[in-house]
């Protein structure tokens, strides 16, 4: 039996529906529960969106490039999740391993003796900004072919000197404009942009393009750690 008698609220069916609608909307739009709801919404649609992105990706078609005069040197902002590692260029080695017949360990001199590829493309950040930039470096597809990946390989996993990590679908890593860059806008790549080697491609958002890359591991299965930002909730495929 209730101890405190409260006046009975007049709650008609209509009023109840109105209130539940309003509070439901408030819960939906408020920021407390919204991150986990957003994650569920994202997880529901991601398989569809990823399928569409894979269909849109034309793995061998070149993305149209821009003239050198269109380069926007000031527009390329510096983003990094933690520190800026200063690597010793003389002892630097790039490892290419995983499910490959011929693992590689390459010095910078060896990498730079390979054919230089260059492109002027639009770098698009997940935050919404973009910059037209020239990247010069070595084709990642060429490096991977030298390591002779097994036929089961589907993914590439990139480790960086600052602890950043990323995983990509194989088709995107083999795209002719995907490279490990050591040049930016015709100059040696600055450390804050990822020197000595960074990923660069016109077909992925900026957070997929790891800086200070030290290891490329070819995998037949998607790793459990997808990528630094992906593990916080960013989309994995992130195609452009």
């Amino acid at each position: 039996m209730p101890i405190i008698q409260t006046p009975r609220p007049v709650l008609t069916r209509r009023r109840l529906l109105q209130l539940s609608g309003l509070s439901g909307m408030g819960l939906l739009l408020g920021s407390c529960a919204s991150t986990s709801i957003a994650e569920q919404v994202g997880a529901t649609i991601d398989p569809l969106n990823q399928r569409v992105e894979e269909l849109l990706l034309n793995p061998q078609a070149l993305v149209p490039e821009f003239p050198v005069s269109a380069i926007e040197p000031e527009a390329l902002l510096i983003n990094s999740f933690d520190t800026t590692p200063n690597l010793d260029r003389t002892t630097f080695r790039l490892i290419v391993d995983g499910d490959v017949a011929q693992p590689l360990s390459l010095s910078l001199a060896e990498i730079q003796s390979m054919p230089l590829t260059s492109m002027v493309i639009r770098h698009v950040c997940v935050e919404g900004w973009a910059a037209i930039v020239q990247w010069g470096g070595v084709s990642l597809g060429e490096l991977i072919r030298r390591a002779q990946p097994k036929s089961t390989v589907r993914y590439a996993y990139f480790e960086s000197a600052d602890g950043y990590y990323e995983s990509w679908d194989l088709a995107s890593t083999l795209h002719p404009q995907t490279m490990l860059a050591y040049q930016k806008n015709g100059q040696p790549l600055p450390i804050e942009n990822g020197a000595p080697l960074r990923l660069a491609a016109p077909i992925k958002l900026g957070y997929k393009q790891s800086k200070w890359v030290t290891r490329v591991t070819l995998l037949s299965q998607l790793p459990s750690k997808l990528g630094y930002w992906e593990d916080f909730g960013y989309e994995w495929f992130a195609g452009l």
Partner: peptide, 27 residues
């Protein structure tokens, strides 16, 4: 205005943060 530009108040935003906003937007 880029990063220094004026930001919309939190009460108008959906998703909690950038990735959540993108989840809603691309759904």
């Amino acid at each position: 205005g880029g990063r220094e530009g004026w930001h919309f108040p939190k009460g108008l935003l959906l998703g909690g943060w950038l990735a959540g906003g993108r989840d809603w937007h691309f759904t």
